[in-house]
Amino acid sequence: MRTTRITTIAAAAALVGLPLAVGPASADDHGGSELTAELTQLNDSGASGTAWAKVDGTQVEVKVETTGLLDGAPHAQHIHIGGQGVCPSNDQEGSGFEGALQTTDAADQYGGVAVSLTMEPGETGPDAALDVDNFPTGASNTYSRTITVSDEVAQQIADGDGVVVVHGVDHDGSGAYDGDTKSDLDPSLPSEATDPAACGELDVAQMAMPEGGVETGGADTSGVEYPAVLGLGGLAMALGAFGLIATRRRATR
């Protein structure tokens, strides 16, 4: 009898404890499980963008919008977790081409790869970090994918521990990944292919973010208002004037 009661209490405690484990995001009055990041350039790449994520269990919906990247070249992109959970600054130098920051130079800041943000059908684990065939290749990219992650990673992202890093910098302006410096991640690749180009910390949004813009317009005021009134009024005036002139003519005749 006593053991049953203890089990019941334990079960109840587990149930009560569960929502708390979802993290500070859900404990917050306005919080959801949405996260946002403003991506800013590293290595003077000129790249920028935004990232948005929504965690639902172990499903993470991710959207990344980037611009200012080298066109026609794959841009590896990941959610890093670990380190201090921060981005290096744009002027931070490293061990690469003319002091360029290489990916591992800032590993103590943004940690290691936890999720590879590949396109279908690419794998999404850390092993797919350099799956160049499945990363966006444009100067501007709009990426969207829902990814299944481990409980731990889902929790860390929901807590705001994730950092989005986008890679690939054309240091010498040649229009392609080249140069003598080899990548610190894969010596078969030039360092330009893997050096970090943009970074942003995924912070917990303070609200359930509305979809799209707002419909706060009533009517157009750019053209002519009440066109029918103006038109009919004008017509009436014209008819009246024409009639007056006509009758005057007849009278004088």
């Binding site: 002519v224 103006l230 004008g234 009436a236 008819l239 009246g240 009639g243």
Partner: peptide, 21 residues
């Protein structure tokens, strides 16, 4: 009738003109 048309039309135009935004 013509004068009335002129007056009504004129005031309609004036009314609409005063409401241009």
């Amino acid at each position: 009738a013509c004068a009335a048309l002129l007056a009504v039309g004129g005031s309609a135009v004036a009314w609409a003109a005063s409401r241009q935004v």
